[in-house]
Design a protein around this nucleic acid. Structure first.
Lengths: 119, 119
DNA sequence: ATAAAGTGCAACTTTTTAGTTGCATAATGA
DNA sequence: TCATTATGCAACTAAAAAGTTGCACTTTAT
């Protein structure tokens, strides 16, 4: 286990993001999340209607999304409404932007290196 | 299975994104991906050095990332170099932006609805 | 009051994923 | 040449995830 290379600070914050990506990493969950992006809260039954699986399965998916902070739940009467929650989405976007930014910077450095080499 | 509500076109493209998110949804893989964002290709051994798991495990993770189009592999001599691949990352960002956009639009509509109601 | 709708909990099976080990093979350096 | 380094393949174990079923409970509508 040589520690020669610089070790990125993943593990400090990287795990958090991976949990959120994991929540989105299931087609059913991503579909639910995508659907809730119109702002309208929906009950579990409503969300289960279009899914080709049990209500219980959908419930589990919703709890995974909730645990990841991607949706919010509040009970109204006998039904529990799940609603889109934009905060974590913003976090995910910020993270991906940051990664893309590092990549761009690396490209720039490589470009200027090549240019320096050519003159 | 009532089809009263409008069904989003997830499944047409949503599954693709979920596969990519799933690839990023593991802390080890996200760490590798994050690390490769500096543009420097690295061999499997190099990437295994800092990981607290077997080289084979890292290899599997790299193949998952490769299958998702997040990294590229090419063999040089006896070692196989894995490099950052920005295309899919851009796709992911675009998708999240689109979702966030839909959410924003929904907020706007709600806002103007409330304003209309108040006057 | 009572049936129906919406949900929750718990136990269970099945499938996938993460990780390991052992062995074989190609490329490199002394 | 021969040891070393880097990798690939296959079989395996262990753990997590996905999904099911059955039953109980609360809320709503008739």
């Amino acid at each position: 286990m040589s520690k020669t290379e610089n070790i990125p600070d993943i593990g400090k914050h990287g795990d958090d993001f991976s949990a959120m990506f994991a929540a989105l990493g299931d087609p059913t969950r991503l579909a639910i999340f995508d659907r809730l992006a119109d702002g309208r809260p929906r009950s579990i039954s409503t969300l289960s209607d279009d899914a080709d699986m049990t209500r219980q399965a959908v419930t589990k998916h919703l709890r995974v999304l909730e645990a990841a902070g991607l949706v919010q739940n509040h009970r109204v009467g006998r039904e529990s409404q799940y609603a889109f929650c934009p905060d974590q989405l913003a976090q995910a976007r910020a993270y991906l932007d940051q990664v893309a930014g590092r990549w761009e910077s690396a490209l720039m450095r490589l470009k200027s290196f090549v240019e320096d080499d050519e003159e």
